[in-house]
Amino acid sequence: MSQHNLPNDRGRAINTGDVLAWLLLSVLGVFWLMPFLWMLSSSLKSLAEIYSFPPNLLPEQLQWWNYIDAWNAVPFARFFVNSVIVSVGTTAGVLLTSSMAGYSFSRLRYPGRDKLFLAYLATMMVPFPVLIIPLFILMGRVGLVDTLIGLILPAAFSAWGTFLMRQFMLSIPREVEEAARVDGASYWRIYAQIILPLCKPVIATLGIFTFLGSWNEFLWPLIMISSVQNKTLPLGLTMFQGQAAVETPWQLVMAAATFSILPVLVLFVLGQKYYVRGIATTGVKG
């Protein structure tokens, strides 16, 4: 065995290519981590240090109070709660509607089913900015402007989610469903007790994608929400920014950005497996 071919703990030989790949990936990892590290570093600097060149990654003097100042300047606790309500509500809505629609489009037989599915899928082609004004008028007519429900409801239906669920459900053997039907199970029971439990992986994937998307959503909340108490975290972060960039206390913005991503970070760590699988399954960029 040459020195370039050492065994790893699984017994497979490690070759030079592996080492080079690890090195390259490590460098890329640090490169990709830089924005996060920079945010963390800037959150602990003074404004004068942020405007210094050459910049230092490590702050000269740690300004921990930036976090306290940022937290106290605007009601971040409220923004957190709102973001959680909207993200959880949207995720629950998308999972429910997408799984039901996916079940219908994949397992039920009725005239025009596939055309209906294609029509629904075609709604993905309409850019969201085109829909903003009609949707805003609609929300205004039903009295949902400046409410959290107004953020959840339009986002609770996802053509992409339906597509994802349908494709996964198509891969479940039809025999499973037929056996249940022979035993007298209704469509609802088959959906709830047979199909859904088998869809856990795709539910986890869709759930994580939807939650992250909703957590970071900016444009629709920007249009819909007008009161401070109903703002979500992305909107709350902009409350520090002045008309000119130089008037913005960037150290507070960075501190606020740091604690606003913590829940997402936790979610990502817990559901990393499904997130990566989702990317592999759907080809969606992370």
Binding site: S226, S227, V228, K231, F240
Partner: peptide
């Protein structure tokens, strides 16, 4: 009085235009 604020300069114009166009 309900004054909406804390909107960035660029986003302000998107929001104002949408709000007025939407008849709110």
């Amino acid at each position: 009085p309900e004054i909406e604020y804390g909107i960035t300069w660029a986003d302000y114009w998107t929001k104002l235009q949408t709000t007025i166009a939407g008849g709110a």
